[in-house]
Amino acid sequence: MAKKEYAFYPGCSSQLKASASNYLVSTNAMCKSLDIKLTEIPDWNCCGASVGYCEGGELPRIAINARNFAQAETHLPGQDIVATCAACWLGARESKERLDGSAQLMKETNEALAAAGLHYSGGANVRHMVEVLIEDFGYDGLKQPMKKSLEGIKFAGYVGCQTNRPFGIDGESFENPLYLDKMVETFGGEALTTYDQKVTCCGGALAFSEPEKSQKQIRDIVESAYDHGAEMIVTPCPLCQANVEVYQSEINKKQGTKFNMPVLYYSQLMTIAYGGSAKEAGLNGQLIRAEKLEKIAGK
């Protein structure tokens, strides 16, 4: 298979020593196995995330995304932009769609970009890493480099919000997307397809400001995973991963639950399935250790 090249947009949380650094580590390992070359967009900036709305307003948010597009378009011509973070993907893709849909907005945006000597001419597709995997490789293609099976582990595929709505992945349902389940099954794991909290919002945007609200969501998400017999949760979103993993101890403390559910990225699963080490998969970055996965990695 020929090497596939993409303009990589890691996003703030997936930098080294940021909250999703394990996502970055495992993504790099996964891409290596799939012969994907990721080139970071030069000097990329934050997407603004949805929570930037209050102060940011509309055009500033779009303009900073357009800055990334302009950089990618200029320095990595012809390459699709690939984001691993759900919020980055959504923020970027939404900006792109609005720019595509309005000449007026494009004009104003370029007026803003001109302040930094940049120009965006409308190129560069914005895609999520999972989209790339499913559309450009397909489940069969993803299976090719597989060396180890994830057999014996039960996964609840927690898709969350922003890779799912409003754009979705591969035309799948917003209410019952199955792509994580299909990925799990591709690598030999047991997918709990009826897990009913797979698209519940984790409340990430309120995690800091109104933690009791988001923690109620997290409790539902984890509890249902237990109810369905899950041993691990797998997710495509760094905000989901962080929220659902990090606050389990907090919920345990406040509500007397005994949650201890590892929350992994698909890229971590894939890295292990491709024969990567626990470290390459960023498993050392888990607050709640994924012991069964570590065991497979160690085999």
Partner: peptide, 28 residues
């Protein structure tokens, strides 16, 4: 878990062309 860097308080990640970035935000 190496997912939070206390050194960030002193600066941390950022874009290089900060001036340009700020100009864009201000203009927008």
């Amino acid at each position: 878990a190496k997912r939070l860097n206390p050194m960030e308080i002193f600066g941390g990640h950022g874009v290089k062309d900060l001036k340009g970035f700020h100009a864009i935000v201000a203009k927008a």
